[in-house]
Design a protein around this nucleic acid. Structure first.
Length: 223
DNA sequence: CCAGACGTTGTT
DNA sequence: GTCTGG
DNA sequence: CCAGACGTTGTT
DNA sequence: GTCTGG
């Protein structure tokens, strides 16, 4: 699964790496991105700029936006079959930008330890996302997204049963602009484990109200 | 046809 | 909106 | 994902 | 226990 991540590069780094324009009044470095927050994405319908969408997909037909609290992930294996996701998969895809994500490893029925997972070379990456637009009773529009998950690779297997789909850099533009569903599905696979690394961090990350760089620091746990 | 659900993860 | 279940 | 709330009536 | 909010 993927229920929390970070994205904290400086504006110029983002513009160079992803070839987008970043509005500095909207962007802010984030160390603990949580569901329901507006987070940095690149959408297929505005791929020249960095957009901010709400995490937790609210489908077009939703009566209440709270449904989005449950729709934070979409399983790659079934995304083309689910009524809530298939339409977005066809026409509304996005890149969810990140420099690392968090998973809680269950060490016994009562205890869990948070881990940070990132690229070995600290590079930025894009997770595969789908989005939708929803209108509330006051006719305010909300753009929201879900992160696609897949089976774990050899690194993630030790931590969790699922992991987010991380796109190879060469596939990022294809995910946004290729509309062939068969090709799109081939992009939804586990990322190469040898390019990634993971380490335990403190439970500071547990509360979404903590959003400071210290969250990323390694911590030793004694058993 | 209409009514009702529409999700993932983890645990039992 | 679109699919499943009755 | 985790944390924190979870309710109504009537009165101020 | 289960839902909502972040």
């Amino acid at each position: 699964m993927c229920g929390r991540f970070s994205f904290s590069p400086l504006t110029k780094i983002i513009e160079d790496r992803f070839d987008v324009k970043v509005d500095p009044s909207q962007y802010k470095q984030r160390y603990n991105c949580a569901p329901s927050q507006n987070l940095a994405v690149i959408s297929n319908n505005r791929s020249e700029e960095l957009s901010f969408y709400r995490w937790g997909l609210i489908p077009l037909w939703a009566k209440d936006k709270s449904i989005g609290n449950k729709m934070i992930n979409a399983k790659a294996e079934t995304i083309t079959e689910k009524a809530s996701f298939k339409n977005s998969f066809k026409r509304k895809r996005c890149l969810v930008l990140s420099d690392g994500f968090f998973e809680w490893k269950k060490i016994n029925p009562k205890e869990k330890i948070p881990y940070r997972i990132k690229m070995r070379d600290d590079s930025l990456f894009a997770m595969a996302g789908i989005w939708d637009t929803w209108k509330n009773e006051e006719s305010d529009y909300i753009n929201s997204f879900a992160i696609i998950t897949t089976v774990p690779n050899d690194l993630m297997e030790n931590i969790h049963l699922r992991m987010p789909v991380i796109l190879e850099r060469k596939d990022e533009q294809n995910w946004l602009h290729d509309n062939n569903p068969d090709i799109l599905k081939t992009l939804l696979k586990p990322y190469a484990a040898e390019l990634m690394t993971a380490y335990p961090i403190s439970t500071l990350v547990n509360s979404p109200t903590n959003d400071s760089p210290e969250i990323l620091n390694p911590v030793e746990y004694l058993f």
